[in-house]
Amino acid sequence: EHLRGFEPTPRVDAWRRTSGLHRVRGRRSLGAVKALWETRDQIAEARDVTPSRIIPDAAIIAAATALPTDRAGLLATKGFHGRGAERYSSRWISVLSEVAALEESELPTRTPRTDGPPMPRAWAEKDPVAARRLAHARDAMATLAEEQGLPVENLVVPDSLRRTLWTPPSTREPEALAAAVAEQLAGYSARPWQIELVTPVITAAILAGDVEPPAPPAAPEPDPDLGPDADPED
């Protein structure tokens, strides 16, 4: 029932999945990959075909590496082929020209910029309280997903969950916190049914994460009257 009308959140920087991207050097060429990928995606969507039927990833990499400046140079680029290579050549050259005119600061970097939280494996070191929130939430979300018969990622986008747990609302009054969590999730484009399901879980995880775990019991102090080889029964 919950999956009716479900639309997955578009992957951020999907162009970075272009096969062969690791061979591209320089931010200008990375920008060309991005521009060509996005243009190919637009053409494919308009024609209702898979993007690789327009031009393959290898053609994008070839053009982005060579950075030709005119149609003849583009079509002469080794590796630039595909059904739409010549047919849409004016569009390919147009976007390559746009990339050539960009300032360096406008070009993508090898590692995508992010304003989100660090990788989960770093949470314990950077923010132990947030790490506890995440641990509580993961366990509870797994249970909820099993109860609902849904994959965990369908309950809420993982990035939205991590962002909410990394920078939760400041209030700790349960009702106010739940309302603020729901509002935060809505800001991340969570659907109403998702918000209804996961808000109690996330709220509980935030509150549980604030509780310091009990310290391990201290080791017993050695008896100064007993030597290292003494028998305590003597």
Rank of each mutant, 00 (worst) to 15 (best):
Y88S: 06
P174A: 03
A59V: 07
A101F: 09
E86N: 13
V33L: 05
T77Y: 00
I195C: 08
D13W: 02
A208E: 01
S52L: 13
R121L: 05
V211S: 05
W92Q: 07
F80R: 09
T65A: 02
V33P: 01
W92D: 08
M141P: 11
D234P: 13
G227M: 08
T109P: 06
E1W: 12
R91F: 09
D223H: 11
E212I: 11
P118W: 00
A230Y: 10
G149K: 07
P8W: 00
W37G: 01
S29M: 05
T111I: 15
T50H: 12
V201I: 14
V99N: 05
S89D: 13
P158V: 03
T77F: 05
A218S: 15
T9H: 10
G5I: 07
P118Y: 06
T65Q: 05
A101T: 10
R23C: 08
D48L: 09
R87F: 15
K78W: 02
V181Q: 05
A62I: 01
G31W: 07
D210F: 06
T114P: 03
P217L: 12
I61A: 02
D139I: 12
E196V: 06
E38L: 13
F6H: 15
P108G: 10
A122N: 09
G26S: 12
R17P: 00
P217F: 07
L3V: 12
E45N: 10
L107H: 09
A72K: 11
L36R: 08
R162L: 01
L207R: 04
V99C: 07
G84Y: 11
A180Y: 00
V201E: 02
R87M: 14
V211R: 08
P174E: 03
L30V: 10
R53P: 07
D57H: 11
I54K: 07
D139L: 15
A100P: 01
E196L: 09
P168V: 03
E104G: 14
E1L: 14
P117W: 03
R83N: 14
D139K: 13
I60W: 03
L226W: 08
T109I: 10
T69Y: 01
L161A: 10
D231H: 11
H2K: 12
R133F: 00
H81N: 11
T39M: 11
L21I: 15
P216K: 07
R28S: 11
